[in-house]
Design a protein around this nucleic acid. Structure first.
Lengths: 235, 235
DNA sequence: ACATGTATTATTGTATACAATCAAACATGT
DNA sequence: ACATGTTTGATTGTATACAATAATACATGT
């Protein structure tokens, strides 16, 4: 066993606890439960057809994931995310994305680099055609590839963790589609820096890329910008 | 309730589960349990005089904290930390410490700044006297104050999390080496940058401070801090 | 001796019973 | 009306009983 996966994923998908955990996480992230809504053990248990034990264990994990807050002898409440939290997350991510870009420069494989190039190329095409759906998908994938290329499970896990929180506010905080072209241009610059083995530049560009994404988001209003689309644009 | 504490601490110190959690965490971090050692629910329960239920719940949390790894239907095993993990953690921390320094520059209160100044001053004294114990304590506190001054519970939690892992390998690195004076000098520079409201410089210095700490640690032989098996498997 | 199938045992996973705690409704005295 | 004490019900916290699973030892046939 490598000690690389220091922070563990919840691997136990098929135990009742695992199922409860994943289901609750999904429901919280999707917004099924309101902010500050109280989750009762028996109610959740009955809904999923299990006893309190696996529900409680899932609660303990969700608490550490930050999705709920447990007040001793009182109850479990869905946590909210403030605008400051969102800003903090983006700023933290900006640093870590920068680090990921640096490490990617050092560790990227030929296959990964080619996927990045193809990603940028395809994104340019879809951007011109106005295919927002595909564009969002490619955007996500670009970052995923970079995380993988960083060669650090540790960092990868951190970034995925933060990404999860951002997903929660995607309804409140959806970036506008017109960031697409600019975002893709930034991807291309990051990719080029990685390709040319310029780690300093890659880190700086990836860092700025995230800050731009955040500022664009703020500019478009943290509150009202709503959209049907499941995907965010322009990270 | 502020949504600021997105990632929760384990606040429930007085429930049996909380006690088990804190005790186990302490024992793992202190090295009482070997790497890959199996933790059995009943054994732990009997040792602490509680039933399996609170032990199991504590296990679930420790799993997410990354201190143990739970294999379904099999057991719970203390996770190890590889040399690469340590490096990754330090590099990630370097970025986040930098960010903390930047935000501290923006949000620090007069009281916090004064504690920093006093800290540096005291550390200089103890350094000259060779009081390693106090020096280590002041070092920890310096960073704690900076985290608090950052005004971001989010970042604070992240850094504490990482700090915890580092504790498992650090132990005597600061004490043994003559890094004390140099480290304190760097603290002073960071403090001055914060005081002068030079956020860019503060970030840069705090960033470099962490990298220096890591390189010093490596120079003094990280090898004793982790197990042979991990070294062979890892790089 | 070896492979394979079958108890045996230890351990985890889950359900449930009971205790402790909290909050709201109610009652009481002023 | 108000404050305070008390009862009641709901909910969480913990212990324990039982089921499922995995590893080991054992037995059996070849």
């Amino acid at each position: 066993m490598s000690a690389n996966d220091l922070k563990q994923e919840v691997t136990d998908k098929y135990s009742l606890r695992g199922r409860v955990f994943n289901r609750l996480r999904e429901d919280i992230l999707s917004g099924k439960y309101e902010e500050n809504e109280e989750l009762r053990e028996v109610a959740i248990g009955e809904e999923l057809g299990v006893s309190r034990t696996p529900v409680r264990e899932a609660f303990r994990q969700l608490e550490l994931e930050g999705l709920i807050r447990i007040i001793p002898n009182k109850g479990a409440y869905v946590t909210g995310i403030s605008e400051k939290d969102v800003k903090d997350i983006y700023m933290i991510r900006s640093r870590l994305e920068g680090l990921a870009a640096r490490w990617a420069t050092e560790h990227i494989t030929l296959e990964q680099l080619e996927e990045m190039e193809e990603n940028v190329y395809l994104a340019k095409f879809h951007s011109e055609k106005g295919h927002l759906e595909q564009l969002a998908e490619l955007d996500n994938r670009f970052h995923e590839v970079m995380y993988e290329a960083s060669g650090s499970k540790m960092l990868e896990h951190q970034l995925r963790d933060f990404h999860q929180y951002v997903l929660r506010v995607r309804k409140k905080t959806l970036a506008s589609a017109n960031r697409g072209p600019q975002s893709n241009l930034e991807h291309e610059q990051i990719m080029m820096a990685i390709k040319e083995k310029n780690a300093d530049l890659a880190e700086q560009l990836a860092h700025q890329h995230m800050i731009n994404a955040y500022e664009n988001m703020v500019k478009n209003g943290l509150h009202e910008a709503y959209s049907e689309s499941e995907k965010r644009i322009g990270e």
